[in-house]
Design a protein around this nucleic acid. Sequence first.
DNA 1: CGATAGGTTGACCGACATCAACCGACGTGG
DNA 2: CCACGTCGGTTGATGTCGGTCAACCTATCG
Lengths: 282, 282
Amino acid sequence: MTASSTTPYIVSTNRNTSDRLHIGGQPAGGGTNPFATPAGCCKDCMSRDYCVGSQLSALSDSQPLPLLRHNHTLGYREHLFREGDAPEAIYVLKSGAVKLYLMSEDGGEQVVSFYMPGEVLGLDALGTDAHRSSAMVLERACFCVIPLASLDRVPGCHQVLYKLLSMELVRDHHTIELITKKDAEAKMANFLVDLSQRFRTRGYSGSRFNLSMKRTEIGSYLGLAVETVSRILTRFQDEGLLQVQRRQICIVNFARLEKLAGYGALHWQAQNTAKTGSVSLF
Amino acid sequence: MTASSTTPYIVSTNRNTSDRLHIGGQPAGGGTNPFATPAGCCKDCMSRDYCVGSQLSALSDSQPLPLLRHNHTLGYREHLFREGDAPEAIYVLKSGAVKLYLMSEDGGEQVVSFYMPGEVLGLDALGTDAHRSSAMVLERACFCVIPLASLDRVPGCHQVLYKLLSMELVRDHHTIELITKKDAEAKMANFLVDLSQRFRTRGYSGSRFNLSMKRTEIGSYLGLAVETVSRILTRFQDEGLLQVQRRQICIVNFARLEKLAGYGALHWQAQNTAKTGSVSLF
DNA sequence: CGATAGGTTGACCGACATCAACCGACGTGG
DNA sequence: CCACGTCGGTTGATGTCGGTCAACCTATCG
């Protein structure tokens, strides 16, 4: 290991060390904790431009969002909430990475989605009495916590929450489509393209990043066996699409990956591979 | 075919005839259109007890829900809304059946979910500027239409809407689990058990009903080929689990079907088949 | 009556799960 | 510091579930 021994593309990055508060790319700020929210208000927050949560407090720009507990941090494998917990707040992920998953009675877990900085967790319990899924930290994470009780006091918050909720629904629908209609290769390509784009949006490199989840979790999310995930990753590498070393990914040929993501599916989807335009299901 | 020729269990039912406003089971009322909402108010609506939409106007029980256009009806294959349409309202399905689906650029369609009377459509576009999915009528349907503009005037509606939205989210998560972790048999069993329970909730028979969707649509929803759906259905019949004739289903051994639905998955889920208690993922 | 759409059935085979062995990284304790 | 166990990841061999192709059946409708 120790990076860059075999592949010059990949720069060694410190993963899972305690001081690492960001995911992927370079830390965008130099300070101690660049992701600390200034005053319980998004106005001066550096994540503001891509943070979907910031739309909430954008409403109350004049005065800071009340009752916003900020800079709540959790370490690897800690839970933000678990199935059955009573909903108390919604959480804006500021840094790190989180997975949302279901637990079947037999112990098997089903990863439902991965969350990146700027995304909002806990919405799926909004009107209910209990969380129906668990959220576990994959990479030391820092949150803005907005207690449900305080939401009422944010005028106009509903529009924003509705939007976030429906965005999540739409995302899930795409996930369903991805899982049912595409073959393993397309699933992986899609997954990587999606990650890449989300990293880029956040100001990180879209071509060099590291995965915050293990193969098992990718497999669970995409409905593939670990071995398949591994194999496809190395196949992609052999074909010159990307470089991979454990969790570190370096996308070499994004266009081709994108093409694989869009078509290359279960045969009846194929046909017009001619189309070259950007596909981008997401 | 012509019903009951081979299987004594199944009673011939008139499908898709113009006067048939309900799905499955027997019509619960004798009149002309038993599903006509009385006065734009849920108070006297016969679907009230199971209608999740009724929670909305329950809030404003004293005076009827304002601006509620009711008894909007659509025929087979008509669209309630399409991908790209600007959201105008939310729709409570009063009778009939609807499918929600996505269209991939290559023309393939992905069924995302099926809706039954009492369920609410259009929530996934609430905070947004366009529908991201299409809703097509599978069986002549009748809706209560609640224009988005009028929602504000219903005090306390947000709690209800949040709840509906998160319920939908949770449902989708279960769908994802179903699709990724279970084998074809378990998927079908799950699908049927789910349908059965929803019918029962609505006062119809949970053991004898007919499907409002064709095999293709079931296949798309579950991520299976049509042929597989067909084969598994006949296998279930051969094993004495149910009787099937085209769209008509009569569940004979519900317990065993339920067991298949819960476990019987991809091997690593098996193990403790000993447990006999009710499984009910849904 | 023929045309068409939905559904069933059989034969075949390929993608992917499964099983098993192995490897490197990492943490712990002697 | 090394031995060792554990965990995550890779790779190969093998089996099989379910997708694909093709033919056929049945109901429905003009």
